[in-house]
Amino acid sequence: MAIEVKIPTILRTYTKGEKAVSATGGSLAAVIDDLDTNYAGLKGRLITEDGSLHRFVNVYVDDEDVRFTGSLDTPVADGATVTILPAVAGGSRDRA
């Protein structure tokens, strides 16, 4: 059984417009690696150069924000749903 990954509008250029794609992998890191083999470049939008999850995206495994479940080490079971959403944030102080 595959894992369903929901893709936000801004990243659908990588998935030929698909809103959801399937992937495999036992952890979030493995799922993202698998995504990148089929949709080249996607990994670079999710993971920073130092190998951590980008702060501009929120990733959920079965509705749980992975920041609270081990980030990239979060286990992803067969049949799970991974949802990627852009963070909606900003503000007058320069933090960029």
Binding site: T9, I10, A87, V88, G90, G91, D94, A96
Partner: peptide, 12 residues
């Protein structure tokens, strides 16, 4: 929009 606003903006 501040630099932070621009960096986070992801609904084109």
């Amino acid at each position: 929009p501040s630099r932070t606003d621009i960096a986070y903006a992801s609904e084109p």
